[in-house]
Design a protein around this nucleic acid. Structure first.
Lengths: 352, 352
DNA sequence: TAAATGTATGTTAACGTTAACATAGGGAAT
DNA sequence: ATTCCCTATGTTAACGTTAACATACATTTA
């Protein structure tokens, strides 16, 4: 018992009071305001005073508190970022890009993963509670994710979308040109002489699914074909879903010589399904992906795919959000970046 | 000009003052303290008063401020988490697990990626500036990452490591049993009758590289073999590095019938290198990985590997950190979780 | 020479919340 | 009847920082 008390009191003594700006001021023989001016390099400070303050900071190991600063300035210099998951390469990479840019500008990104709609709601609440200066929303679905954000936007919360350009809301957005990417992918397969091209899409309610699909359909139409709805199948971006979708396609004896998968992971699942059913890629059936994940070039065969400049996308998103935070009247932008076709080994011309 | 002013003033009017606890108190006809008690469900509040306060909160759309709360409590309920990268599945998954657990307990994790040592330093500074209550360090390298953390630990900052159990520091840690995993992988290959097993490791200075290597060596020794240093090659966890390492091995005419790769991505690179040189996996050479990334079962061949319970690892890490935050005397723990061998298609018995 | 401007510093109050203490009525125990 | 405890609420001060204003001297301009 005595020992326990001793431990507790020792803990207390070790937890000596934090050094504050007042301690620094006293130690340097100036007012707190002068210390503040030195810290923020703002206003007039004589050089020798500055040195004295700096020395005091050094000596006392003073570390300013963002909390107290936020209290008075009303800005936290924190941005919220909500992604469906962190384990998807595309989101992770975008977030990395956004974090880098944000940190370069003195902002920190609070990242939260929100697999389902309830998570979006509670994350948004959490971020409001923590008084983020703005919110970066990755892959907002047309329906759900968006709903909880609306009241915030109306209250003036700066918001940037990635992956969905809103026609109605006063919100900036950043995304790849998914329609063009879908067009490029399909056109490439057409050039290789494929006549029946299946497509493996993401969830139908996602914007980028719809855009990539539109590109696919336009490319087909361009050569006079109508897209056959039976050759359009949906997945959920996972390799498993791609695998299952293609298995089903094969079981139903659908005929096709190429598959445009809307992401690489589903493409990998698709290839597996094809292999298991005795089809070689690309000799029997060609497969093209989307994303260009780092593993893509090491697969067998190396995956032909559309490269997305994800890190750059993230940087731009952060940039745009910060601009909007700093100036509420900053004009809204809808930024769209082109994807690039990367030819590797998973596509070829159909036999006969 | 007049228009501009009008816009600005409108913006100002739209940016009406935030509702504070005082407004709620006034509206409900009670003191702020009573509102605080309702919010925190702490102390005595009469039921009808509570209802009145709740109604006021609802009506005014009051949202409490974590910033102000932190100011007075000295706790931010934020935890810092530093990972080398977010794009590695293992880290992303651990972070997801940690975030979930943390959020369940009212904490929020600030995630930062720190590719190199300078980033670790600046991230740590940032987190101290933001007054996180504790820090979760993923994959701290023996040397560098650790250095900047030491002074913080000494000042009483709660810290939990993932992937490195410190013998000296009073820090809790959480990790997979990497030695055992390395042992299991190698033993499995030995059971399949492989006599010469190469190993593809991570960077030599990382703890988990060393541990997995130790398991590999112990398994060999167990069957009376010494490990051949020429068959131990280093990568940096990327598929590219695995590819290059195996290319080199082959160019140097090293003889082996199996490879134990310390992660799945390098294993994928290794398989590619083998294929390019005319070796089939597993018929000519077997490959076993580590991690069990979601793609592993869809590769050709499906990758045999060691499954790590990453999400659980993350949860435990967060749990441990929060326990330490709440009670500085909480006993330090070194948690080690076993990995599980997942037999798939990339390993077989050597011919002859 | 007086006024204006630039430089350097200090003082006061405020940001939104909770801890700590104070007050006060009602019922139970003595 | 007195004391004590439980319930319910209010008051004051504090957390660490900066905004806004005030002061004061030095230098330039009119």
């Amino acid at each position: 018992m005595g020992e326990r008390i001793a431990m507790v009191s020792q803990q207390k003594s070790a937890m000596r009071k934090r050094v504050t700006i007042k301690d620094v001021a006293a130690h340097a023989g100036v007012s707190t305001q002068t210390v503040s001016r030195v810290l923020n390099e703002k206003g007039y400070v004589a050089e020798d005073t500055r040195q004295r303050v700096l020395a005091a900071i050094e000596e006392l190991e003073y570390r300013p508190s963002a909390v107290a600063k936020s209290m008075v300035t009303g800005q936290t210099h924190m941005l919220g970022c909500i992604a469906p998951t962190l384990t998807d390469y595309t989101f992770a990479r975008i977030i990395e890009g956004a974090q880098m840019e944000a940190r370069r500008q003195g902002y920190f990104i609070l990242t939260g993963n929100a697999p389902d709609e309830n998570d979006v709601e509670s994350l948004l609440k959490e971020m409001v509670y923590r008084r983020v200066d703005g919110i970066l929303m990755l892959n907002p679905r047309a329906d759900a994710r968006y709903r909880h954000l609306l009241p915030l936007i109306e209250q003036g919360m700066p918001v940037v979308y990635q992956g969905n350009s809103p026609d109605t809301e006063p919100v900036s957005s950043v995304q790849c040109d998914n329609r063009d990417g879908g067009y490029q992918a399909t056109e490439y397969l057409l050039q290789l002489n494929h006549k029946t091209i299946a497509t493996l899409t993401g969830p139908p309610n996602e914007q980028c699914t719809q855009d990539r699909l539109k590109g696919y359909q336009q490319a087909l139409k361009h050569t006079g074909q109508e897209s056959n709805p039976e050759l359009t199948v949906h997945g959920d971006w996972s390799a498993l879903s791609g695998y299952q979708a293609v298995k089903t396609l094969l079981k139903e004896k659908k005929v096709f010589t190429a598959i445009f998968s809307q992401n690489d992971r589903m493409a990998i699942g698709a290839i597996r399904a094809l292999n298991e059913n005795g089809y070689a890629v690309p000799n029997d059936i060609s497969v093209i992906g989307f994303d260009d994940i780092p593993l893509a070039s090491y697969l067998s065969p190396p995956l032909t795919t559309l490269h997305q400049p994800l890190e750059s996308l993230g940087r731009h998103a952060a940039q745009l959000l910060i601009d909007t935070v700093k100036d509420a009247n900053y004009p809204r932008e809808q930024l769209s970046i082109k994807t690039e076709l990367i030819r590797r080994g998973s596509c070829g011309s159909p036999r006969i």
